[in-house]
């Protein structure tokens, strides 16, 4: 059985992420303990809410260096992925700097949050073979970069998914994206 740890630092819907893995037959552990996180085969870094508040909690819990130095596959989801970037315009907060890109706010001309199902395209890495739509809820976005492994259009083209070495990120919620989401989680667990 794969040892999957979901980082539980009090930011949002950790339970939904856990349930999604359970539907696929896995039994993840929820933890904010650095030792437990380091010992995992796979680490999931979720997040919902405000970037600044979430980053403060990660700092308080001493998890910044822990996450940055993980060598096993790590999946950041939604705010989790954004916190893995250099910097976020949300609260002007410095992120973990794993992905070499800054998080920006959507244009005021658009309905924000970008909420609902949208197409993911030009898919590679853990997004390889993914066709269709995934569920997004976010007001800030990651621009296109060399680390982009899937893109999405909402007023502009942005990164739906990122990969760099053992680190992966999804702006959308795979745990809320039906069968398509399940296939992405499975792809991650095949890394």
């Amino acid at each position: 059985m794969k040892n999957i740890v979901i980082i539980d630092y009090g930011a949002g819907n950790v339970k939904s992420v856990n349930f999604a893995f359970q539907r696929l037959g896995y039994e993840p552990t929820l933890s904010d303990d650095p030792e437990v996180i380091r010992s995992a085969d796979y680490v999931v870094f979720p997040g919902v809410g405000h970037a600044k508040a979430a980053m403060e909690t990660i700092n308080e819990k001493g998890l910044v260096e822990v996450i940055k130095n993980l060598k096993q596959p790590v999946l950041g989801v939604c705010l989790g992925m954004q916190l893995m970037c250099r910097y976020s315009e949300e609260g002007g907060v410095k992120g973990l700097g794993i992905f070499d890109v800054d998080v920006k706010k959507f244009d005021d001309e658009l309905k924000v949050p970008h909420m609902g199902w949208n197409n993911v395209e030009n898919c590679s890495s853990i997004m390889n073979g993914v066709e269709g739509q995934t569920y997004f809820v976010h007001s800030y976005y990651v621009p296109m970069t060399e680390e982009t492994i899937a893109e999405c259009d909402y007023g502009l083209t942005f990164s739906a998914s990122l990969a760099k070495d053992n680190f992966f990120g999804c702006q959308f919620h795979p745990e809320k994206s039906g069968k398509v989401g399940e296939s992405i989680i499975q792809n991650f667990l095949n890394q």
Binding site: F19, A20, Q22, R23, H173, E175, K176, S177, G178
Partner: peptide
């Protein structure tokens, strides 16, 4: 709500 969240993979 918890039972729904366990079973259903849409928001």
């Amino acid at each position: 709500v918890e039972r729904i969240a366990i079973e259903v993979s849409i928001p």
